[in-house]
């Protein structure tokens, strides 16, 4: 199981055109990630790490090269199929605006299952299970704007968890948190990884990247280094 390749980037280029301006964000990225890995993709702003994350998350498509998820190139999919991939294969945790405003925590966690057509009773059961895994079952009926930043990230993890995705894709998940809360949130990722989930973490913070087992450093649209994390926390 652990050796199965889940993600592969082959010579991935991404070019943005804004009017006459052409900007090459990715200039030929190659890497692969196996089932159960915990990878941090690091780099300063403008390095291309966010572009990688968007492509990984099927939010954006490559300009050239190939991105395979579970052995299948996803470039050829239409919009609805991409939506389905985001729904079933990828669990997003964003830096901010993770939760639907004016909606209860429970309904937030249930939402991806609604799009997957899972019946209401099962949805609630699975959402409550996921919430109890991140220790927030007591807040299920709270409105999403009545909880703390750390709790919001934990709800986002629970929401990703309910669909049992192939990868957890976290984009600066601790960017808005203080160090202590950030470490708390990271501990949930470690736990998920221990259970065999694949985690990809996008960050520019060294101390956060140190939670991962492998660190891919990106610079100017190219991979600068890709190695095991010796300092792993």
């Amino acid at each position: 199981m652990h050796s199965q390749e889940i993600i592969s980037f082959k010579n991935v280029h991404k070019i943005y055109k804004t009017g006459p301006v052409i900007y090459e964000a990715l200039k030929g990225i190659n890497f692969s990630i196996k089932q159960g890995e915990f990878v941090a993709i690091m780099g300063p702003s403008g390095s291309g790490k966010s572009t990688i994350m968007n492509i990984l998350g099927a939010l954006d498509l490559v300009s050239s090269g190939e991105y395979k998820l579970k052995g299948k190139p996803i470039d050829s999919y239409d919009e609805d199929s991409l939506a389905e991939i985001r729904n079933k294969e990828i669990g997003f945790i964003f830096q901010s605006f993770n939760l639907l405003p004016r909606t209860t925590i429970l309904k937030n966690v249930e939402r991806p299952m609604m799009y997957a057509g899972i019946p209401a009773l099962e949805r609630e059961k699975r959402a409550m299970e996921a919430l109890s895994m991140v220790g927030l079952e007591s807040k299920a009926k709270n409105q999403s704007n009545h909880i703390s930043g750390g709790q919001i990230q934990r709800v986002a993890i629970a929401r990703a968890l309910v669909m049992n995705p192939s990868i957890f894709l976290a984009d600066e998940p601790t960017g808005n948190l203080d160090t202590k809360t950030a470490e708390e949130v990271m501990s949930f990722f470690i736990e998920l990884n221990k259970k065999g989930h694949t985690i990809i973490l996008i960050t520019h913070e060294e101390n956060i990247a140190d939670f991962a087992k492998r660190i891919i450093r990106v610079k100017d649209g190219l991979i600068d280094s890709d190695k095991k994390n010796g300092k792993k926390k």
Binding site: E79, A83, E84, R86, F92, F94, P112, Y115
Partner: peptide, 9 residues
């Protein structure tokens, strides 16, 4: 956000 978590068009 909804599209990211799987909402179709």
């Amino acid at each position: 956000l909804l599209k990211a978590i799987g909402a179709k068009r």
